[in-house]
Simulated scan of single mutants.
Amino acid sequence: MALSVENHDFPQSPLTIVVMGVSGVGKTTLARLLADRLALPFAEADDFHPPANIAKMSAGIPLDDEDRAPWLRAIGAWLKERAEAGTGGVVTCSALKHRYRDILRADAPGAFFLHLSGGHELVEDRLSHRTGHFMPTSLLDSQYATLEPLGADERGAALDVGPSPEELVEMAVALLRPVNGDLA
């Protein structure tokens, strides 16, 4: 179910989408499906982390703003490159704070933020069953404490992650249609 939509007057440009939210909410699953559905390039934000960030999180230590800054700038640069190339793109990124999203918007002012939200118990359960990822369940509380939902001044929408990923993709496409009328 869509929780909110903000559709401000932004210059029309290739569709750049940031699928955001706390770890374990399903960003990668939805972003991959959405990129496939819209025939857009996809990038996983975890691939932009330097080894020091991954080591820190693997040890159960939350990242601070200094750790996140180069990571966010690299994601913003990827979005900018996709916009300049005319391809658009979909990237995952926790983007938990408004100021983090500001860093992304500095390079991609037309980016649309799709905030996946879910209850703590549901997301914790998902995280506890995830394998092969460096983010421990113990850091979930710090992510929820850091999370700042999209503000009225931000271009985006929030979706509850209760429905299936396939249903969420269709909901996301419906939310993006007013932003980019070319969506099928």
Rank of each mutant, 00 (worst) to 15 (best):
H115N: 14
G86E: 05
D36L: 11
L150W: 07
D64Q: 09
L79R: 09
C93Q: 11
H120P: 05
D141P: 00
V25P: 04
G60F: 12
L183P: 05
L40H: 05
Q143V: 06
A85D: 14
G89F: 05
H129Q: 07
F42H: 12
R105M: 12
P109R: 14
E121C: 00
G156W: 05
G86S: 05
G26P: 04
P136G: 01
M135T: 02
F42L: 02
D141S: 12
D125F: 01
A158Q: 13
F48P: 06
S128E: 13
S23F: 01
L150Y: 09
A83K: 07
T16E: 14
G88C: 12
G21T: 09
L38A: 09
E154K: 03
P14V: 04
D153Q: 13
A43W: 09
L147Y: 05
R68H: 04
E66L: 11
G118F: 07
D107I: 00
V161K: 03
T146P: 03
I61C: 03
S164R: 12
D125N: 02
S142D: 06
R155F: 08
N53E: 13
E66H: 10
H133D: 00
P70V: 13
R126V: 04
L96E: 12
V18T: 12
E81L: 01
V179C: 11
A158N: 02
H129C: 00
A2Y: 01
D182C: 03
V161F: 14
G60S: 04
G24F: 03
F48M: 05
H129S: 02
L147E: 06
S138V: 04
E81A: 14
D125M: 05
D153I: 00
G118L: 10
L122T: 07
L116T: 06
G119E: 15
E66K: 11
L127F: 01
L183H: 13
T137S: 11
L122D: 09
Q143E: 06
Y100H: 15
R177E: 12
R82E: 04
G21K: 06
G76P: 01
L139H: 09
S4L: 15
Y144C: 10
D67G: 04
S142Q: 08
A43D: 10
V22S: 07
D141V: 02
T16F: 02
F134S: 03
E6N: 15
A158C: 03
A85E: 15
E148P: 02
L139Q: 00
F48H: 13
E148L: 01
E148W: 01
G86C: 00
L63W: 09
H8D: 13
T137V: 15
T16V: 13
L122Y: 01
F113G: 02
L79C: 14
F10I: 08
K80F: 09
P178R: 09
A31L: 07
L159Q: 00
Q143P: 07
R99Y: 10
R101V: 11
L183I: 15
R155D: 06
S142E: 07
R105D: 15
P41N: 04
E167I: 01
F42P: 03
S94L: 11
Y144M: 05
R105K: 14
A174G: 10
L159W: 09
